[in-house]
């Protein structure tokens, strides 16, 4: 089984090629779970509905959406509705039987709500604020996904989880993909993004063994560091290998075989 995650920017810029590439690999007989992001698309719909998206900066420089109750409504509508179903429809048009689910369906993703967040505020000072409706994934129940895959469908998963008080939560799609891959002991985890892979000193790193991560983690930018960290965690927990590669190319899933991007290996 392969878990493929695509971020919102790559998805918006190259949706059709990504889905054609997914269809090609699915038709080769691979079991595929496709986890999509889509933060920028959520922002666009928020503005259409009269809400101005709010963003916050973490102390390590990661910019994230601040999800309050109203924003959560739009987030769920777009992620589990519009975007997820659009992907499913396009896959069907390519001859792929696909089923779209959110992490809340079948109790797939269970997350602990972040009651507080630590941010760098607009004055550049550290502050603790209320956490809103974001969560950190704690449990994955593969029963539903297993049935979907075993029945010959491609699973399209949106990054929403159930909280422990049964509330819906916005969860990071990279984390969702990594958690699903770990639980399923996936053969491969492929994270498609808008860069070619992990770049250090101006050059792409083709292979990274999990034991090498500690040495280099201080040299990686905040957003990429988190992706590499999640890949390292996945490989340490039973995933065969993880790949970070570009979602902007003609056949993005070819990175599964041809050495494109950065491979994270045991």
């Amino acid at each position: 089984m392969i878990v493929v995650k695509v971020g919102g920017r790559a998805l918006e810029a190259n949706l059709n090629k990504i889905l054609e590439s997914l269809a090609k690999h699915f038709k080769l007989g691979k079991k595929i779970v496709f986890v999509h992001g889509g933060g920028d698309i959520v922002s666009r719909y928020e503005r259409m509905m009269g809400l101005e998206p709010k963003f916050i900066m973490s102390p390590s420089g990661i910019r994230s959406r601040y999800t309050d109750e109203k924003e959560l409504d739009v987030y769920v509508m777009v992620m589990a509705g519009k975007l997820n179903k659009e992907i499913v429809a396009k896959l069907h048009a390519l001859g792929v039987k696909a089923i779209g689910v959110s992490g809340a369906d079948g109790g797939l993703l269970k997350a602990a709500r972040k009651k507080k967040l630590i941010i760098i505020d607009e004055r550049g000072r550290k502050r603790i604020i209320k956490g809103g409706y974001t969560g950190s994934i704690k449990e994955v129940d593969m029963e539903l996904l297993g049935k979907i895959l075993d029945s010959g469908y491609l699973a399209v998963v949106s990054p929403i989880a159930m909280g422990f008080e049964n509330e819906l939560l916005n969860v990071d799609a990279d984390q969702a993909a990594s958690a699903i891959a770990m639980t399923a002991k996936a053969e491969k985890l492929l994270i498609l993004t808008d860069v070619d892979g992990l770049i250090l000193n101006g050059e792409i790193v083709r292979e990274l063994h999990v034991d090498e991560f500690e040495e280099i983690k201080g040299k990686i930018g905040a957003g990429m560091n988190r992706k590499v960290m999640l890949c390292v965690k996945a490989v340490r927990n039973g995933v065969g290998s993880a790949i970070i590669s570009s979602g902007l190319i003609e056949d993005p899933l070819s990175a599964l075989e041809d050495g494109k991007g950065t491979r994270i290996l045991p």
């Binding site: 933060g39 994230s64 972040k114 967040l117 974001t134 916005n170």
Partner: peptide, 25 residues
């Protein structure tokens, strides 16, 4: 330390809790 301000505007400090960076999409 984390600054707390009560409804009367009185300020006091408490030990800040550990909060990891683990956010949503």
């Amino acid at each position: 330390l984390e600054l707390e301000v009560d409804e009367n505007g009185n300020m006091k400090l408490k030990e800040a809790e550990e909060i990891s960076e683990d956010w949503g999409e």
